[in-house]
Design a protein around this nucleic acid. Sequence first.
DNA 1: CTAAAAAGAGAGCACTGCTCTTGCATGCGA
DNA 2: TCGCATGCAAGAGCAGTGCTCTCTTTTTAG
Lengths: 234, 234
Amino acid sequence: MTTVQGARARARAEITAAIKDEARRQLAAEGAAKLSLRAVARELGMVSSALYRYFPSRDDLLTALIVDAYDAVGAAAETAHAAAVRAAPGGHLAHWTAVCRAVRAWAVAHPHEYALIYGSPVPGYTAPQDTVGPAARVGLLLVATARAAYEAEGVALPPLPDSLTPEAERLAADLAPDLPPALAVSLVFAWAQLFGLVSFEVFGQFNRIVEDRDAFFATAAERLGREVGLLPGR
Amino acid sequence: MTTVQGARARARAEITAAIKDEARRQLAAEGAAKLSLRAVARELGMVSSALYRYFPSRDDLLTALIVDAYDAVGAAAETAHAAAVRAAPGGHLAHWTAVCRAVRAWAVAHPHEYALIYGSPVPGYTAPQDTVGPAARVGLLLVATARAAYEAEGVALPPLPDSLTPEAERLAADLAPDLPPALAVSLVFAWAQLFGLVSFEVFGQFNRIVEDRDAFFATAAERLGREVGLLPGR
DNA sequence: CTAAAAAGAGAGCACTGCTCTTGCATGCGA
DNA sequence: TCGCATGCAAGAGCAGTGCTCTCTTTTTAG
């Protein structure tokens, strides 16, 4: 039925990957603002107009890099989570902090790609639909971690103010219908706060302020975990 | 002693301000990536090369806008803080949330300027020295709020892990020698987390997830305040 | 084997940041 | 008050950008 892809299709896939690789290199070297289609093409030994056969515009190339970046950080988080579960199946707080640490480690190792997805939206602001799936991976992982803890041992959470009750219920219905609204709210808080900590470190806001970033972040991640009601395993 | 500035200097100040105003307009309309010196000059009826008499490069213009943005958000926060203190001198948690709300309100009203200062570092990454003073205003205000509460009624904070003790002491010595290390650490946590919440809202990460942003943020700000040990006034 | 589809090459348009030279007028010190 | 140095604008020009359009070559599919 589905035959082996012809040589043309294979070449196309290879060239597409080569373009993205070179673009990633320039991204890491100079940042998104200076990523230039012509420079990518030049480096690859092709003429700039040929590149438009693969990506119809510079923004489309950036979108592809964004999707890849979301997938990369999501994969890193999922791998770390799986390893933590294997190491200590009952330590839900440890699973949480493992995910946080993996996100931070990836961000520090790939600052420009991190900036692409969690910094200011670079071009015309509208996130294409292709990005929403990969973008959700880390968030879903945090939800899953909290769910496991909730089902295993429950969670202790501060009460919600009345003003937030409707939003909390809507949020829980959308996000995780099996979890209590207060947990859903705390998860979204922690999600945003986690990336606040990572962004401040990656974007240099901690320069000359925080020195021992590892210890600092470890404590912050644990506090975030406690904020969503996780308890250290026995 | 200091005479009135000559007409030439006054004209220079006016043109400098006009350039920054027009640049801010383009920033708000199109974002930092599309801010163009030539377009600014064109709109002001001058030739592009004349603009270089006022700002030696595009990055210098951006730096000036960054400093102004830090000052604007700092001023907004300080105004809100002063009003909250006037309204309820003993309500330290209310002072805290007032600062948080002011920061968020300014950010939502000026998303592109916010992105300039708390998004990905746009140009060659090195923050010029001129920016560090204005950049610190909001942070210092948070510290001052916590200090007032600490001196008035003390604060209740979770203990620090041993691994963070040296960093915490260094941090407190640098940041606020009169405050306990645990408070200094919690303040930096809350500082980063506050901007994580604001950034996620401004950068669209809450799209299709959080609907009632006001109520959501109000609760988050209060929890951040409690995290640094603030208690609701009587 | 041939017609159609895909890919590359190159020229060209409108734009960008930035530099350099030239001419002008304006505000300053004498 | 006057002369001139200084501050500033104008314009041309360079190298680079995203993107489009043609024209040719290659490859695939029928």
